[in-house]
Design a protein around this nucleic acid. Structure first.
Ligand SMILES: [Mn+2]
Ligand SMILES: [Mn+2]
Ligand SMILES: [Zn+2]
Ligand SMILES: [Zn+2]
Lengths: 124, 124
DNA sequence: CACATATTTGGAATAAATCTAAATGCGGCA
DNA sequence: TGCCGCATTTAGATTTATTCCAAATATGTG
């Protein structure tokens, strides 16, 4: 939890596991414990899990509300400033019970966008 | 593609594979081909892939624009009527290149909501 | 310390998806 | 029709992410 609170990079479970146990000191957390803790933190609502198609899940300490931008090319997850989102109409919602909504934008992150521009100077 | 166009149930790759090859007739598509075709259809923009945390990806022929509702309990993906979504401000977007946005609502689908209500009659 | 309970752990097991090399299908042409 | 080159499909092995499990360890209480 402390690691997630300090690192806003949306790490995967494997990245968190390696970061916790990297270099010298005594091991801090096994792989199973890392996964167990992440599961529990998500269930408790303290951590958000972001599923990215084809890649490992990424995790995010729920600080200030925000939206996400996911890069088509590198898969990075970046934070976008929060703004409120309209709810679906009651008719369209039926008797579902709404808990939250998640807004994800997709495209090229700034790094991938500039790389792409350099390689294909002709393409608009 | 024909199967996806006719079935709006957001099937997984495995479900599509089994449905295509079910019962008597000659096999229609191997598992590898099913995955290959889905990958190509997604790249071509004809099919949408929905990543659900912890579960297999689900697929959706891109017909009319719509949003998605994902059930916390059973993981089902259901369609919600489309409505337009505000974009992030230019400042917040930086020099990312925006391609599309995806709005996902979460909670309990109507079936799971009524089951839940029956089992916990006291809980509000 | 002695004991009960809770947490952690390494490694095996599962699940989804991808890779690969071989098999099969298909169109054009003699 | 028979042969060839190219494209597609296939079965099975492989990889990757995650969960499961039973044993080991830690922790608290008197
Ligand atoms: Mn975030
Ligand atoms: Mn849909
Ligand atoms: Zn990128
Ligand atoms: Zn449900």
């Amino acid at each position: 939890m402390a690691f997630l609170a300090e690192h806003h990079s949306h790490p995967t479970a494997a990245e968190i596991f390696h970061a916790l146990n990297r270099n010298g000191g005594a091991p801090r957390s096994s792989r199973a414990t890392t996964y167990n803790n992440l599961r529990d933190l998500v269930q408790a609502g303290l951590v958000r899990e972001v599923a990215v198609e084809g890649r490992a899940a990424r995790f995010d300490a729920r600080g200030m509300r925000h939206h996400h931008f996911i890069c088509d090319r590198c898969g990075n997850v970046e934070d976008l400033q929060w703004f409120s989102v309209p709810r679906p109409g009651l008719k369209s919602l039926g008797n579902r019970v709404l808990r939250e909504c998640e807004l994800i934008f997709r495209g090229l992150c700034s790094r991938c966008a500039s790389q792409r521009a350099r390689r294909q100077p002709g393409k608009k």
